[in-house]
């Protein structure tokens, strides 16, 4: 250890080169990894193309389509947007929301309460 630090102190050029090479090395490694991932992405896009390609288009379609049918109801636009987003996140595939109705029963509240109780259960 001691002899190593002495020889290094004697030749400052070594440390310069180390710095430079190390950074280039890390950039090169990660760039290569990026390349692999990109290629991988293309392969997956091709094989699973049907679902992957349409997914980004999906959120754009239903949102403009929706306000018309819902316009008659009393729900605020914010709530409609939230519900549309939730539906999109759950279904994922292309869809159209035709109507949003308030349900009269208390299933949701009951379900929420059940979730809370379940989370306390010791397993």
């Amino acid at each position: 250890m001691l002899s190593a630090s002495i020889t290094i102190a004697a030749s400052e050029g070594v440390s310069n080169l180390t710095v430079f090479l190390g950074f280039v090395f890390v950039i090169a490694v990660l760039a290569f990894l990026a390349g692999i991932t990109q290629v991988l992405g293309f392969i997956f896009a091709r094989t699973g193309g049907a679902t992957a390609a349409k997914a980004p288009a999906a959120p754009a379609k239903p949102i403009p389509a929706k306000p018309a049918p819902v316009a008659g109801s009393e729900e605020s636009p914010e709530l409609v947007a939230i519900i549309a987003a939730a539906v999109h996140a759950t279904l994922g595939e292309p869809h159209r929301i035709l109507s949003i109705k308030r349900s009269s029963d208390r299933t949701w509240a009951a379900e929420g309460r059940r979730e809370i109780f379940r989370s306390h259960k010791v397993r």
């Binding site: 180390t18 990660l30 760039a31 991932t37």
Partner: peptide, 20 residues
């Protein structure tokens, strides 16, 4: 977006500069 790997790599520059 694999290009982001390059940003992660670039941010290691500080490590080498400080080393120096």
């Amino acid at each position: 977006n694999p290009r982001m790997l390059l940003l992660g790599a670039a941010a290691q520059f500080g490590v080498f500069a400080t080393f120096f």
